[in-house]
Each structure stands twice: as structure tokens, then as C-alpha cells.
Amino acid sequence: MSEPSYAAGFDPAAIPAEVRARLRGLRLGTRLNSRSAGIGQHTGHSRGAGLEFAQYRAYGQGDEPRQVDWKLFARSDRYFVRDALRESPLTIWLLLDASASMEQADAVRPHYRKLDAACALAACVAEIALQQGDSFGLAALSGAGMQVLMPGGGRRHRDQLWLELRALRHGGTLPAETAVRPLWERIAPGTLVLTLSDDFDDTLVAFAERLAAAGRDVLSIGLLSAEERDFPFLGGHRFHEPESGAELHLEARGGADEFIGRFQAARAGLSRQLAAAGIRHCDHYLDEALDAPLQRLFRAGGWAAPN
């Protein structure tokens, strides 16, 4: 087991310009109604003053007289009040897996680890949220425990997120479920939760399932290396699993097909499991464009932007 270490080395400049440009076409959204108070861009749970007509309802004590639809009163001789949907801001929690398994990179690009991709994706999502005026928070889980940035909005908060990502503690194994429990109180119902993990650890998957079951809109991006997809190894190799320290000596040539079959089956099983829990999931391979999973989740995915 490797010791947790600092300095993931996230650099916001690492997000390519074309990716940054493509982000503008994306909109974050939730299938649930946002329960957060305030004025935002998302369909809110509460009705009240707003532009979008919701319904007529009978006048009750406490309603302001200017809300009464006088034309309808003239027709029907009853007091009706126009109700409008209030548009609420959205809160996005970025749940980042920073365990040792996320330190894996492809041999062709040895300095671009899964963790780097996860940080870049988190920064991308924060960028979109900033455009939409939504607030975003970060919870990074690693062997060193939990690193939490409470949700907030604005450019200063984005800079703060960058700082957190830059000084990210990573390595080790994911903390036990009890250590993650404080997150329960902070991730409010109705928020959007995006997990960035390789999903090799069942702890985070179970946590995501519980969040989804408890009324949070959970999305999941599985980060996988191209080697895990293609298994391009030839000859004898010593495969080292960084979290448990287990090693396996393998003649890679013969095991490729078997591994690819098993691995794809496992991923498909995970995908079904998450879908059953109501979690939208897609995999992101390290040799893909950075915004590809975001495009899949937020553009073509189940949720369409309200306008």
C-alpha cells in the first residue's frame, strides 16, 4: 500500500482550449427539482413569483392582492392567484476518488494519470457550473481521509477549487464508510452528485447508490486507462496492484483475451447495477477527449436543458 502523498499537480491550463470551448454547449441539470432556496436557472420545487406559469389556485389568506388574476375574477367572480414556478440554483457535489488505484496511467502517456483526468473533469464541471451560476463543492477521498470544499459559487470559489485540486492528497485506499458519514449531512437532498472514480472500490459505488436512493441525483464517470481496455502487454510482466500491494506474474500475451472479456463483463455489470440504482454512468478512457463523458452525460443523456 502506497502512502498518501500530496500535489496531484492539477493545472487548469491542462484543459485544452477546444475542450474549454466545447464546454459552453453543455448544461448541467438534474432530473429532480432543486430544493435550494434562492433564484437560479433550474426548475425549482417551490412555486411563487417567476416567469414560468405553473397553475391557478384559489386565493388564500396571505396572498398579495396583486397576485390575483383580476381578468379571471371578472369572468368567474372568484379570486384566483397565478402561481409561477420559481427557478432555483443547483448545487453540484464533485465526489473525487483519489485512492492509489487512480494513480495509474498508460505507458504511452505516463504522466497523465486517472487522477489528473478526474481533476480536469472536476474543473470542467466547475467551469460549466460557474457559467450557469450554480454552486459546486468538492469531496476528495483518499487514504489520507477526506478533503472537502463546501459548495459555493463564483470565480473566487472556482479558484479555491483549483487550489484544492492542486494540493490534493492522494494515494492509499478509500476510507471506511464511517469516515465518509459527515458527507451525508452536507450533501443536501436534491443536489447533483458527480462521482469521478475508477469504481474498482465498492465503497464509493455503495455510497453513490445510497445517495441516489436518498433523493440525490447521482452521476458517475468511470475513469479507465486505455491499457485496461486494450491490454496491450506482450511478454512476461509483473502486475502490481497499488492498493493491496498484490502482485501477479503473468505471461501477458495469453491472458489478454481473457482479461478483456472479464473486465468488460465487470464494467457492464457495474453499469447495470448503477442504472438500476438510478445513477447515470459512463466510462471515460484516458485516451479520449476530456469532454467526451460530459457530452454523453449532459447533452445526449437523459436530461435535457429546460430552455
Binding site: 487512480m102 496511467a105 510482466h237 509483473r238 502486475f239 503473468l250 505471461e251 482479461f259
Partner: peptide
Amino acid sequence: QKLVRFAALRWLGQGAR
């Protein structure tokens, strides 16, 4: 043998020793 960091070890078959 070449040392490879490979987190998806559990799906590597034992049969391919």
C-alpha cells in the same frame, strides 16, 4: 519481468500464469 502498475488486477486470470 517488467513491473506494471495495474489496478484492475482482480480481473486478471490466474489461468494465464
